[in-house]
Design a protein around this nucleic acid. Structure first.
Lengths: 174, 174
DNA sequence: CTTTCTGCAAATCATTTGCACCCCC
DNA sequence: GGGGGTGCAAATGATTTGCAGAAAG
């Protein structure tokens, strides 16, 4: 059921990465807000000698149309409905790719597998997850971010990404 | 996915501890004057009409001896070494039970499966996880906790439990 | 052309479950 | 004594991977 986190697949090790890989990517994306995600993806692939295939294009389009959080299965079905009969294998391979590129991130582990969300066009945020209805509330706080950075500095830890999940009951379910 | 051994076996964070180690230790000891975990477990089981079996007793003893974070597999092997040949099935069933009872909690998802830690006798804390060596650093901040509470209040969300995981590179791996 | 992709099916792997005895309360 | 408990092995289910033909550059 539960699964592992990112950072493992990939046969191609890639060139030596700079100190803060994801960080840099995120910054790049933030700066390029006017650039379409499609262009970002394509460029990222090129830089790594990978190909911009029809399947990847279609997957990107589908996830950009996702309202909030989704999982591999949702993507699989959504693409079916849209007429693109991509295989699960490709779905998974692409999700990993999109995370590496910084367009997606793994939001958290639901009871069944990973849940993803876009990074592109969405400010970083944390999650509150209702234990009863499963509703996900997003929130964020500058101060919270800053405290985390301070903590990392104090521990000489180079942060790449973080996740804060608060489990509890939403207003309706309490 | 074939190297599920050495890489993440770094469960013990090592001597380099958070800022106020003494303070934390004192707290733990002070709290330890309360009811022993065995008694808590036993009573919880009774209340639910469940039985305090030899296997459960042994599992509890083993996890209480775990220094920090561990996973199902570690527990399985640790018990073998100790001479108790409990099955994986029972390990998993007991871990779930101990979480429900509040003696354990799922700390986070490592690259391979869930990682657990005691709740009993340990002050709440967050985690920094090294993406390279798997080392886990614990830290905590009153301010951070408070900000989270504030956020929940603002969203009318009733928090039950939370997890903050910062992924990145530890001092040695950077 | 050369190299990366994709679909498919088989393989993994952590975790769960069905069953037939076992053993606390 | 009986209902929960345990081990074992088979079942799950999300995700991965080997392969051979397909496509991108």
């Amino acid at each position: 059921m539960k699964r592992r986190t990112a950072a493992r697949r990939q046969r191609y090790a890639g060139p030596r990465k700079p100190r803060r890989p994801e960080r840099d990517v995120l910054h790049a994306i933030a700066r390029g807000h006017r650039e379409a995600p499609e262009a970002i993806f394509r460029r990222s692939l090129e830089l790594r000698g990978l190909k911009y295939t029809a399947e990847r294009r279609e997957i990107l389009r589908t996830i950009m149309s996702a309202h909030a959080h989704f999982d591999a299965d949702w993507l699989f079905l959504a693409m079916r409905k849209a007429g693109a009969k991509t295989s699960k294998a490709t779905i998974y391979r692409s999700l990993a790719l999109l995370c590496q590129v910084g367009i997606l991130r793994e939001a958290f582990h639901g009871l069944h597998g990973s849940t993803y969300e876009h990074v592109y066009g969405h400010e970083h945020h944390e999650h509150m997850i209702c234990l009863k209805c499963g509703k996900v509330i997003e929130f964020m706080s500058r101060k919270l971010e800053k405290l985390q950075e301070d903590a990392c500095r104090a521990m000489k830890f180079q942060p790449v990404q973080h996740h804060l999940q608060v489990f509890g009951y939403c207003r309706a379910c309490e």
